[in-house]
C-alpha cells in the first residue's frame, strides 16, 4: 500500500463486513509516534480467529486463499519499529466488536505516509451510507473531526451519499486539514 490511509480504508471495510453500524477511526500524532486505531462494533472474533488473523494464508473468504489486509498493515507498522495490537469481544457479549491499534514511528525511514484521509473517508461514506463513522485526527497543530451521527441527524431522510452531500463533507474535511497546514506554517 502506498499510503496508510489505504490500509485504514481496507481494515475499516472488514469491520463493516462484521456487521458493525458504528466505526471509530482515530489518528493520534505525538511525534515521533503515530497511533491509528480502528474500532468496530461488529460481531467480534473468536480467540482462534484472532490468532490466525496475522497469517496471510488465512481468510474467511471462499473466492481465494489469501487475506493480505491485516498482515500488510502489521508489516507497515513493524517496519517503523511499531506494532499492531488486535483485541476483540465476541457477540453476544456486551460491547462486542474488534479494535485494531497500530503504532508507527514517523521518524523511521520506512514510515509510509498517511496520505489522503479525506479520500478514504469520502470513499467509506459513499459505499456505506448507513454506517456511523466517527473520525478524529489529532496533530500538534490542531484536530480534524467528523461525526456522522450529527450529519445524519441534520440530514434526516436524505441519504449521506447523495453527491451534493459528499461534496459538502469533502470540503468540510478539507477545510479542517487546511487549518492544520496553516498552523504548521506559523
Amino acid at each position: 500500500m502506498q499510503e496508510l490511509s489505504l490500509n485504514i480504508l481496507d481494515i475499516t471495510m472488514n469491520g463493516i463486513a462484521a456487521g458493525a453500524d458504528t466505526m471509530r477511526i482515530s489518528i493520534e500524532e505525538a511525534y515521533p509516534a503515530m497511533t491509528i486505531s480502528i474500532r468496530d462494533n461488529g460481531c467480534g472474533l473468536s480467540e482462534e480467529t484472532l490468532e490466525k488473523l496475522r497469517d496471510p494464508f488465512f481468510t474467511s473468504r471462499t473466492t481465494r486463499k489469501v487475506g493480505m489486509g491485516v498482515p500488510l498493515f502489521e508489516m507497515q507498522a513493524e517496519m517503523t519499529g511499531g506494532n499492531l495490537e488486535i483485541s476483540s469481544v465476541e457477540e453476544p457479549a456486551e460491547g462486542h466488536g474488534t479494535t485494531f491499534k497500530a503504532l508507527f514511528y514517523m521518524h523511521n525511514i520506512n514510515f509510509v505516509p498517511l496520505g489522503d484521509m479525506v479520500s478514504t473517508l469520502i470513499t467509506l461514506i459513499q459505499g456505506n451510507p448507513n454506517i456511523d463513522f466517527i473520525y478524529h485526527h489529532h496533530t500538534a497543530n490542531g484536530d480534524v473531526d467528523l461525526d456522522m451521527r450529527e450529519v445524519r441527524e441534520t440530514l434526516g431522510d436524505v441519504p449521506v451519499n447523495e453527491p451534493d452531500i459528499l461534496l459538502w463533507l469533502q470540503s468540510f474535511l478539507e477545510e479542517q486539514y487546511e487549518a492544520i497546514k496553516e498552523g504548521e506554517r506559523l
Binding site: 479520500s119 470513499t123 459513499q126
Partner: peptide, 16 residues
C-alpha cells in the same frame, strides 16, 4: 471492487 487487492491496485481514485 474495493477489497485489499482493489485498493492496493488503485481502486480508490477510480471510484472517486
Amino acid at each position: 471492487g474495493m477489497a485489499t487487492c482493489g485498493i492496493a491496485a488503485g481502486a480508490r481514485p477510480v471510484l472517486s
